[in-house]
Simulated scan of single mutants.
Amino acid sequence: MIADAPSVDDRKPAAVALILRQVGAGQELLFIERAHHPDDPWSGNIGFPGGRRDPVDETLRHTAERETMEEVGIDLSGACYLGRLSDIVGANLPVRVSCFVYGLAEQVEPTVSPEVHDVFWFALHELVAPQRQLTAQVSFGGKLLEAPAIDLGLPGKAVLWGITYRLVNQFREVLESGEERQLPYELPL
């Protein structure tokens, strides 16, 4: 017998921070490569800093900010909060991820925590380049899956896929639609 998919209420809340910085005439996004742990279904994957909501978190935005500080040592309290993307539900695990977008006016140097293998910036225009888009074979939970992905072209790094891929595309669509001009803030980028 196949169990029913979990209802939306059964999904564990999590939050991530999409962090932008201006470099020359373009923007870069901050990514992490998760540490490699056999018990972590996202082990070694590329993502945004973030994690599951903790009982001490007043809101999911606080979760994103706390997790960002813990994972990469960036304090987002002084960053420009730009808004929230639509939540994404996991296709393979019962999780609901909220994504909060921040712009950094100052250059910061991220630090790597034990939860993170690497931290790096990647140009936004490169993320949306057609030649980087592909369907890739990825491993998740001991299974091989075919998934839409972005080849970052970085030696030794996995492709960007899954929830982070979906969030990057959602962010790109917001930028292309011009919706950010209707928001009650100005992009500092």
Rank of each mutant, 00 (worst) to 15 (best):
I2K: 10
I2D: 07
A3N: 08
D4Q: 13
D4A: 13
S7L: 12
A14S: 15
I19P: 10
L20Q: 11
Q27R: 14
E28D: 14
L30D: 09
I32H: 13
I32G: 02
P38E: 15
D40R: 01
W42G: 02
F48K: 04
P49A: 07
G50L: 01
G51P: 05
P55G: 04
V56A: 14
D57V: 00
E58R: 11
L60H: 00
L60S: 01
L60C: 02
R61N: 01
H62R: 04
R66M: 02
T68D: 02
T68K: 02
E70V: 05
V72Q: 09
G73Y: 13
S77P: 02
A79K: 02
L82E: 05
G83Y: 02
G83C: 02
G83R: 01
S86R: 15
I88L: 09
A91Y: 06
P94W: 08
P94C: 07
R96A: 10
R96D: 03
S98A: 15
F100H: 15
Y102M: 11
L104K: 08
Q107A: 14
E115M: 12
H117V: 02
H117R: 13
V119P: 01
F122N: 04
F122G: 06
L124N: 04
H125N: 13
H125I: 04
E126W: 03
V128T: 14
A129V: 03
A129I: 05
A129D: 15
P130K: 00
Q131F: 05
R132M: 06
F140Q: 04
G141S: 08
K143N: 11
K143M: 09
L145Q: 12
I150E: 05
G153I: 01
L154D: 04
P155E: 14
K157P: 04
K157G: 04
T164E: 04
R166T: 12
L167D: 06
Q170L: 10
R172F: 11
S177K: 09
G178V: 02
G178M: 03
Q182S: 13
P184Q: 00
P184T: 00
E186M: 07
P188S: 12
L189A: 10
L189C: 11
